[in-house]
Amino acid sequence: MSERHLIELQVNGEPHELLVEARETLVDVLRHRVGATGTHVACEHGICGACTVLIDGEPARSCLVLGVMADGHEIRTVESLADESGLNDLQEAFTACHSLQCGFCTPGMLMLAEGGIPHLEDTSREEVRELVSANLCRCTGYETIVDAVEQVAQQRRSEDPTVTEGASA
């Protein structure tokens, strides 16, 4: 049997103590040990972005991180976005703009946007397009995803105009 390690993960604010194989990727840990199956797996080599989650607030491909290396870190997944009052602004924009069809890439897209919007410098359409280009979608042709993220990025920026550190080269 492959070597195992006991790790602690904060997933969407809840602590989890987990026994994982050293070789086990974070996305497998999240899906099959934590039971947070909202995060999807579609390439397992870091290109498609379906498994994007936030690690300590930063978007990351959870298929490129070993679970054991995430020990002690805070993870946020798509399950954290909505609350009792309903969908968050990004989720609302995605449904309003028809930014999803089959929905398989959607959790990764949402977490990419959630973690990526604070890194945007001017929230221009081109900058948003570049952010969205991190992840693959096979259904929409991306235009409506860019629409939704652009809308929310500009809305959030207008509500909190603090520019990210390092912005404006």
Partner: peptide, 19 residues
């Protein structure tokens, strides 16, 4: 060293650059 920061835009995508 400004070029170094500018060139980072070409490195993969944000979720790769954060790790």
């Amino acid at each position: 060293h400004g070029l170094i920061a500018r060139t980072m835009r070409h490195v993969g995508h944000l979720p790769i650059r954060t790790r």
